[in-house]
Nucleic acid binder design. Structure first.
Lengths: 262, 262
DNA sequence: ACAAAAGTGTTAAATCTACACCCATGG
DNA sequence: CCATGGGTGTAGATTTAACACTTTTGT
């Protein structure tokens, strides 16, 4: 990636808004999985108590998908992240959260935002969801005035504009596409146990799955390797570790994964 | 719908471009099914030989999804069409097809389009696909300078900008989601035969399906009613007609349709 | 009577479901 | 030696897949 420093922070926007696409923004729902819970990366402004989805505007000469990757990279240090468009939020009256943004501008930058400011124009926003390996993320805020944190998905959370709606729509999409995306490969570390994989699916589906049958089914797809290695330090029988076999996964993907409807 | 007359034609754009969103357009891939073939609605300008996907710009005070419905309505007279976003085409250099558009403008409107014209700015386009009942469509062009026709999906077709890519991506999406969307209900007329339904699936999947097993599976979902009626005038045993039962379909939808992965 | 496609039954194989039971580990 | 999950087998029910045979219709 050809990015040296963040261009998405507020300061950059204030200085030269005209380098950005005039009516399109991006919001990312970054999912992680840690200690049996789904996490989401959220940001907020120092001194304020509302949380937001990490997002940004799109540069005039920037491909929209690249913009999303750029944000992800600036935010987590990760490249080649599993990142998908899921919905364009295009309400006629959708825009930056007026009240919150005005407060932040005044407080942090000493700038008064009147209603005709570039910032207050209509923006449609492209929603992206990302699946990342929690253990590999190195959080770094997009600007000196922001914080970034992992938050539990189940806790209400973002109160900025329509970000809560966006986040839940992302979740809905993932649940919907569960048979078609490599959730496990993207959200778990290289090596993982069958239980971890199963709990991940249980969490996303919101229902318990039969341990025995889950294992059988998942292994039948034949793109997961059983390793000659076990997890140590647990207070019971140490479980076998598994890992995704990319080669085999690609083959299965071509054959249609779970698309085998008829 | 609160629309009286088309606002998407070129003339409207030329007169007052500033009522539109400055960098977002919409392109629709409208699918129909007729005589065992998948059809797509395409438009072209009188006197020119390239075809395009029907599309439009989004009004400043218009929800993006509504804009898509508006186009569909203006084009086909249909409301409440099954219409879904499928991809945002966001290349940095994506815009109106310069050459073709310039020619059309000069020839039909006597206007010279220089490179700095509003029209030549960067536009990202939201791709929508629609599934419509071929027999219900009443084609009406968006402007007096356009023609609209049903074209076979398999024939190369649109040669305007990236419209061919868009069309094929739409198809890919439908194939991908085949187990999750009511293709049959949307693309077939009220009453249809089992063969029609099967051929539809075969067409989309591009492979033959076992007649007996297809019927059994489809009926097992239990949202299709067998009617006391047969198709007449065929040169062989007249087939039973079926129709979708919306009530039952909704129930099945809630239960998860084909999402029953684990 | 024939061709063409509809309508239906059957059987073997594959998969799903729901348990049950033993195993290994740290405390 | 116990509690806690891991690992594996199995029997019965259900679903799939592949055929085959019969029926109906217009020509």
């Amino acid at each position: 990636m050809d990015i040296s420093k963040p261009v998405s922070g507020l300061s950059s926007l204030i200085q030269n808004p005209n380098i950005f696409h005039p009516g399109l923004s991006i919001d990312c729902v970054v999912f992680g999985f840690h200690e049996k819970t789904l996490k989401v990366l959220l940001t907020n402004y120092k001194g304020f108590d509302f949380w937001m989805l990490p997002g940004s505007f799109v540069l005039n000469d920037e491909n929209v998908n690249n913009a999303a990757h750029r944000i992800l990279y600036e935010l987590t240090g990760l490249e080649n992240v599993f990142l998908r468009q899921f919905y364009l939020f295009g309400d006629a009256n959708r825009r930056i959260d007026r009240k919150n943004t005005r407060d932040v501008f005044e407080s942090l930058y000493g700038i008064k935002l009147d209603d005709k400011h570039w910032f207050n124009r209509r923006f449609v926003t492209m929603g992206y969801y990302a699946l990342v390996d929690y253990t590999k993320v190195k959080i770094s805020p997009l600007s000196e005035n922001e914080r970034v944190e992992w938050k539990d998905f189940d806790s209400g959370l973002p109160e900025y504009a329509d970000h809560n709606t966006i986040m839940h729509k992302a979740m809905e999409t993932i649940r919907f596409q569960l048979g078609l995306i490599p959730v496990g490969r993207e959200l778990l570390p290289e090596k993982f146990t069958m239980s971890e994989l199963r709990v991940l699916y249980e969490t996303i589906l919101g229902k318990p799955l039969n341990r025995r049958n889950f294992e059988r089914k998942v292994l039948s797809y034949d793109y997961i390797d059983k390793l000659n290695e076990r997890l140590k330090g647990v207070a019971y029988k140490s479980p076998t570790l598994y890992s995704f076999n990319l080669e085999k996964y690609k083959q299965a993907e071509v054959k249609g994964l779970n698309t085998e409807w008829l």
